[in-house]
């Protein structure tokens, strides 16, 4: 019990930090699912591409571990490239691969999404690098370790948490306080009725992909800066976990995805710290299955009618 009490705060902090990354990616799933009712399996790979874009920009300005221009400027440029590039990628995927199938059989866009996911992963593997690519984060962000009481955290992990929370709050304001956000929520509620109200549904869908993918790209950047490495396979597992987080929070529910992500991160960290490091992922998915069984609509979701 002592062991538990001593380590609990540290595991909680670790979990919140990982969880904020899950939440950032989960938002993209939940936004798209809320509006199109489709699982965008390629979302995790958009996050991966974001990570690589960040690494690429960093590679342009950092040579031999020395930044050529002020580090803050480089990070800003990286953020711009990651969010912009990933956002455009998401919009492109929607335009080319999903829009032609919007009214097709329910399985069709899901299968295309699997294809897009495999395409992004394998093209990066073949064309960019099959091995992990280093991100020169030690030249870009302070490498200090912050200590509060018995809890320690690297500066960047804390920055990851703060940046994610800020982005999530901004999205929350956008979705719940602006006119366009209202249009998004209306489209999610009933696409046809939204059309009758004069909402340009296509524009809403494009914006949804842009925002979700930009957040994922930012996630890729934050991951790269925190762990100093990106690889072509990194979007796969985290994509599935972020989806699990979105489902736990109630798929289609923006605030649910945030809470679900943090919940899953903390759960995983607790399992890793107190039960077994080897079976961390197993427990994460068991949590998902239990949530689906006990409360299929997720923690915050509205009970959904079963779509035939």
């Amino acid at each position: 019990m002592d062991y538990f009490l001593q380590n609990f705060p540290q595991q909680l902090v670790n979990g919140l930090e990982t969880g904020s990354l899950y939440a950032l990616i989960a938002l993209g799933y939940t936004l798209v699912y809320g509006i199109l009712e489709m699982l965008n399996f390629a979302h995790g790979d958009v996050y991966m591409v974001g990570g690589f874009l960040g690494a690429g920009v960093a590679g342009l300005f950092v040579h031999n571990g020395v930044a050529a221009v002020p580090a803050g400027l480089i990070v800003a440029l990286m953020a711009l490239a990651c969010m912009g590039g990933a956002g455009l990628l998401g919009v492109g995927i929607e335009r080319i691969a999903y829009r032609p199938l919007r009214n097709a059989n329910r399985l069709a866009p899901l299968i295309t999404a699997i294809g897009v996911s495999l395409f992004l992963r394998s093209i990066v593997e073949v064309q960019v690098s099959p091995a992990p690519v280093l991100v020169p984060s030690n030249a870009l962000v302070p490498q200090t370790v912050i200590q509060v009481g018995s809890v320690t955290t690297p500066f960047m992990a804390l920055a990851l948490f703060v940046a994610s929370v800020v982005l999530m709050l901004a999205l929350d304001v956008f979705v719940f306080r602006t006119r366009f956000g209202t249009a998004m929520r209306a489209t999610a509620q009933d696409r046809e009725a939204a059309t009758f109200m004069g909402i340009d549904v296509d524009r809403v869908i494009v914006a949804t992909f842009l925002i979700g993918s930009a957040l994922a790209g930012m996630g890729g950047l934050l991951f790269g800066l925190t762990f100093a490495t990106v690889n072509f396979f990194m979007g796969f597992l985290i994509g599935i976990k972020a989806f699990a987080a979105a489902v736990i929070g109630g798929i289609g529910n923006v605030r649910g995805a945030m809470v679900g992500g943090l919940f899953l991160g903390v759960l995983e960290s607790m399992v890793g710290g107190f039960i077994s490091t080897a079976f961390q992922d197993t427990f994460a998915f068991l949590a998902l299955i239990v949530v689906l069984l006990v409360r299929p609509q997720g923690l915050f979701g509205q009970p959904l009618p079963d779509r035939a």
Binding site: I96, A97, P100, L101, A104, N105, A108, I111, T112, I114, G115, V116, S117, L118, F119, R121, S122, I123, E125, V126
Partner: peptide, 19 residues
């Protein structure tokens, strides 16, 4: 080396043009 690139493109193209 490109087999998964080719296969995934086949999958996408089939779904769009000849589902």
């Amino acid at each position: 080396l490109y087999r998964y690139v080719v296969f995934s493109l086949i999958l996408i193209v089939i779904m769009i043009f000849r589902p």
